[in-house]
Amino acid sequence: MLGVQQRRAGGTGVDRAVVRVEEKTPVADGVVTLTLAAPDGGRLPDWTPGAHVDLTLDNGLTRQYSLCGDRWDARSYRVGVLLEPAGRGGSAYVHEQLEPGHVVGLGGPRNNFPLVPADSYLFVAGGIGITPILPMVVQAELLGADWRLLYGGRQRSSMAFLDELAAHGGRVQVRPQEEHGLLDLPGFLGEPRAGTRVYGCGPAPLLGAIERACAGWPPHTLHTERFVAAERGAPVRTTPFEVELHRSGRTVVVAPGTSVLDAIAGAGVEVLSSCRQGTCGTCETTVLAGQPDHRDALLDDEERAAADCMYPCVSRSCSDRLVLDL
């Protein structure tokens, strides 16, 4: 069974580091959506369109999935997962083994692909790249922006969310390759112009084609997100690790299910915190040695790689030992 279920709530907050699979639904050939909720049914951390979460699966793999649900529903997340037979096992695990009732580790949400304000948007999605775009079109509609979506895929039956997109009528062009050939990007984008933002998500060849098609557009027009396997210095651990508090000369063992913040407090060292969701930054702590397992919503990839600070309310350790400046 999954070994991360027995986490205790810290302080007044509920532990946000796990979610439970509520539903698993096939939505297209090779695509399932997962509906995720907090084990206690409480609010999940807020997110914005373009955000993703890290899900730590029971087979030890961590995978990033864009949130594609409704942010007005504070109690559930939805992600879409494409079965990739040539992948490293994350999608196969989700498709074949993960079931409602299972609990998975949660990191984030983080957003490296935010929707910036604009008068008009052109969205291009390829295949499962539709997932971050889906909440974006909802948001563009809410903002009263002019927008259109060009959505490509191998064949119609493999393209997820066509039913939801149908509600937007003529703003959405669905172009399965089997029926239409390659996407006509120049025709869709039209002449370069100011005030428009282009958002693209999908496989690398499509993103390359979008970049070439946008070459003549004003700077900062194009926003893309690539789906790449998360690179980590070490695999996420499900076993205890040590945290050495350098200044106070103490060492604590952090068991699975206990936050680093609570473990430190248990050793008599208080670290000021506030949100307990990895979003406010109050508990920022300097890391002197070791490799943090970052679960916050604040650090970008470069800052994560630097491994010089962490937010112990949610973040943990990849290495056997972390040394903190406390």
């Binding site: 302080g11 907050g13 208080e270 506030s274």
Partner: peptide, 10 residues
């Protein structure tokens, strides 16, 4: 430990 106060909102 004053963590969690709502003096800054939440």
């Amino acid at each position: 430990d004053p963590s969690g106060h709502v003096g800054f909102g939440m």
